[in-house]
Write a protein that binds this DNA or RNA. Structure first.
Ligand SMILES: NC(=O)c1ccc[n+]([C@@H]2O[C@H](COP(=O)([O-])OP(=O)(O)OC[C@H]3O[C@@H](n4cnc5c(N)ncnc54)[C@H](O)[C@@H]3O)[C@@H](O)[C@H]2O)c1
Ligand SMILES: NC(=O)c1ccc[n+]([C@@H]2O[C@H](COP(=O)([O-])OP(=O)(O)OC[C@H]3O[C@@H](n4cnc5c(N)ncnc54)[C@H](O)[C@@H]3O)[C@@H](O)[C@H]2O)c1
Lengths: 224, 224
DNA sequence: GCGAGATTGTGAACAAGTTCACAAACGCGC
DNA sequence: GCGCGTTTGTGAACTTGTTCACAATCTCGC
């Protein structure tokens, strides 16, 4: 385990492993080999072991990994070992789905406050919370101390909301709006784009249809 | 342009380019250089050109790319040049956000039918649609001919829904449920996991906080 | 305690994707 | 038409991430 920078794909998979482990724990399974992890996660056993090797040694040769122990380790790595408060901005469709989502709890992620700028909405209940004025975000987060924020506002408002989140002390942003956000270097942004996902599927769906129905046809495109 | 298999990251970026181009078109811009694309998309000019090179030559040296022309080309590549019907399964929170989402239109993606198995919901209106019985999915898609499906049901029901979608002729699935789906090889699946995204952010958010506040502290973890 | 069988952790080989750098292509002004 | 500044398209170099393969480690039964 030579301490290098951890690849992002590894972090993404860590969350998948964690889900599998929680399921296994639920089912009363005590121990899991990398082989079994491959079965359940679809990620190769070698990849699983390599991923963990960035952080230390968690398994026992000949046995596998303690489910409970590994859960604790991965949670610690991902800082999910203690509750992570989150600021949600945008009390619309997406925001609505998120506040009601029960699975966050299992990962100790909690939406701690919701903000909007529509003063018809401000003051109204939203899930367990009351919608707050976006103007008060700094002040509110002085209490909460959240490092994570979610942007669920229309694209044209996303940048100013990002600025407000950063100003309020957030260093990680999950962005649902279809825009590129400009943020200081210490702030991490991850974009969620359903359109992008569907576009990729669209390409493949038809591509494969051609290969299945017609004869497997490759190249042939003149390109001009 | 040697005809090779197109990398998935390239396809993902194609959707981003398309969005930038549509914005530019909206603003009346006629021509765009790869340099300008970098400005707007955050993706390097070289990457942009390399991505396009998988599909042909679309620009003019010394000038750049015709915005309108490139929009048409990328739409054709992503099969977004004619309407793509989509089957949505699960008329819950996520489903609700999706049916009401206006941006799909701009990409010629249309949710053509919604299915659920809760017979309190079946028959009710949902956006512009009426919720259909999941049992009728094959029959309904015989009319529609959709190749794309979205799974927005609880995790425990996701696999059977996936099977139903495949049976109905779908070859691309966007999956919101936190499970690994088992599908035939010709079916492409993309998973959307907010938890995963947040977990990655959680790692970085705190990691960076340490580097900013405390002294840049690396290693030191005993790992056992 | 010791051999058999299982499984880990990891360097080394490999694959995939990104960046570089430059020749070829273009438009424009003269 | 011709040189000049601009920008493309792309092989080659580089970087990053994945897979392989095997020595080292552990358990268990006897
Ligand atoms: N609905 C979907 O299925 C879907 C899918 C993909 C992406 N998105 C994107 O997610 C974002 C949110 O989508 P939605 O459907 O929830 O939108 P929505 O219109 O339902 O909600 C947006 C909310 O943001 C609030 N808002 C606007 N400007 C604000 C500001 N400056 N500060 C604070 N709040 C502000 C509005 O008052 C509204 O309550 C959009 O960018 C959309 O493109 C939505
Ligand atoms: N809500 C969120 O913010 C969120 C976030 C991330 C992931 N997800 C995931 O997305 C999925 C949907 O979430 P949601 O909040 O919309 O759930 P939901 O409970 O609001 O809706 C689920 C819908 O699926 C229907 N359904 C259940 N079994 C079915 C079956 N066999 N066939 C057809 N329909 C069936 C239910 O009747 C219900 O209408 C879940 O897997 C959830 O884990 C949700």
């Amino acid at each position: 385990m030579t301490e290098t920078r951890v690849p992002v794909p590894t972090l993404e998979r860590l969350a998948i492993y964690l889900r599998v482990l929680l399921d296994a724990h639920e089912s009363g399974i005590q121990t899991l080999s990398s082989q079994e992890m491959e079965q359940h996660s679809g990620i190769s056993a070698a990849q699983f072991r390599k991923d963990l090797s960035y952080f230390g040694e968690f398994g026992k040769p000949g046995v596998g990994y303690s489910v409970q122990g590994l859960i604790a380790c991965i949670e610690r790595i991902l800082r999910l070992d203690e509750e992570q408060p989150i600021l949600l901005v945008g009390a619309g469709n997406i925001g609505s789905a998120l506040v009601g989502y029960p699975n966050f709890r299992a990962h100790r992620l909690r939406i701690a406050a919701v903000f909007d700028n529509n003063f018809v909405k401000i003051g109204r209940p939203f899930g367990d919370l009351i919608i707050e004025d976006i103007a008060r975000i700094r002040e509110v987060n002085a209490q909460i101390g959240a490092r994570l924020g979610i942007i669920a506002v229309p694209a044209h408002a996303a940048q100013e909301v990002a600025d407000a989140l950063v100003d309020a002390g957030v260093t990680g942003i999950l962005n649902f709006a279809p825009t590129i956000l400009r943020t200081p270097p210490h702030v991490h942004v991850r974009n969620v784009s359903f359109l992008q996902e569907l576009a990729v599927l669209s390409y493949h769906a038809v591509e494969d249809a051609l290969c299945v129905n017609g004869q497997a046809r490759r190249g042939g495109d003149d390109g001009v």
